[in-house]
Amino acid sequence: MTYDAECTFPEGTLYVTILPAVTKHERWGDREMTLPEGRLGISSSCHEDYPGFVKIRGRRYRVASRRGRAHAARESLLRCDDPDASLWTYQSPLHRRWEFTNGLDQEVSRESVARGRLDAMVREAADRFEVECPEWVRISERLELEHLVQAASVEVATATRALHQAENYAARMRDRLAECRDRLANYVD
């Protein structure tokens, strides 16, 4: 996976990649809302074949996080009660079982200080990237739409192939039926 930006911290570097958005369809009162929520991949590895780590208090940790950004229409609701509310939600790890692992490839405990710092680094990397690349949400949405178009094209090709197979089968059955009728007509005569 290629990355779109680097965010350097005293503990190490995190790499940010724009991922396809996830569009949510919701009903707000009497209105149907389509809310594409941009997503970022944030990792300590610039390439999955070469694992990268960050160091906290002399220990190595690996980051592989997928974060979603709340849609602008939802932002005011989130900030209503808490003006400092995070607009980033954890979605899933990138290519791994856990979002944060230690040097032994074990999940970092939820109560640990290191996990709190890793989570803060991921949120800060996402915030920095949003400032550096304000059009990233549109790119994320474009990636989602490109994927949907590609998936629809595959469905069309599959349906077209199935239609041609069905037409060929129907033509063969019509030929067999015609032969059967001819034999019957010759038998009756």
Rank of each mutant, 00 (worst) to 15 (best):
W98G: 06
L78Y: 10
S86Y: 12
N102L: 03
E99K: 00
Y90P: 03
L78S: 10
S112V: 09
G103E: 09
W98A: 05
V108R: 00
E99N: 06
L87E: 06
P83L: 15
A85G: 04
D84G: 04
Y90R: 04
Q106D: 04
L78T: 10
D81K: 10
R96W: 06
R110G: 06
E107W: 02
A85Y: 15
F100A: 00
T101A: 12
D81T: 12
C80V: 06
G116Y: 02
W98F: 07
E107S: 04
T101K: 06
Y90T: 03
V113L: 14
S109E: 11
A114M: 08
Q91E: 07
V108T: 01
D105G: 12
F100D: 01
H95E: 02
H95Q: 07
R79W: 15
A114I: 12
L94Y: 08
P83K: 01
D82I: 01
D84L: 14
S109A: 05
L104V: 06
T101L: 04
P93W: 01
G103P: 07
E99A: 03
P83R: 08
E111H: 13
A85C: 09
A85Q: 15
V108E: 03
V113Q: 15
W88Q: 08
C80M: 12
D82E: 11
D82Y: 12
E111W: 08
L78M: 10
C80P: 09
L78K: 10
L87M: 14
N102M: 11
L94D: 08
C80Y: 14
R79C: 04
Q91A: 00
G103N: 08
S109P: 06
P93H: 03
D105H: 02
P83V: 11
A114E: 14
E99I: 00
S86Q: 10
S112P: 07
R97W: 04
W88K: 12
W88N: 03
N102H: 09
D82F: 15
V113D: 15
R96K: 11
H95D: 12
W88G: 07
R110E: 15
D82K: 07
Q106H: 10
A85F: 15
R97S: 10
L87Q: 14
R79L: 12
E107M: 07
Y90G: 04
D84Q: 08
D81R: 14
E99G: 01
N102E: 11
S86V: 09
S109Q: 11
R115E: 00
F100T: 00
T89Q: 13
P93S: 05
W88R: 06
H95A: 04
D84P: 09
R96V: 03
C80Q: 15
D105N: 05
Q91T: 10
D81G: 12
R97K: 12
L78P: 11
R96A: 11
D105Q: 08
Q106S: 14
G116I: 03
E99M: 01
E111S: 14
G103A: 15
Q91H: 05
W98M: 06
S112C: 05
V113F: 09
C80K: 13
W98R: 13
T89E: 09
R110N: 09
P93M: 00
R115I: 05
H95M: 02
V113H: 10
E111R: 14
R96D: 02
R115K: 13
G103C: 13
E107I: 04
R96P: 03
P93K: 01
E111I: 12
P93Y: 03
S86A: 09
P83F: 10
S109V: 08
F100S: 01
F100N: 00
V113T: 07
S112M: 07
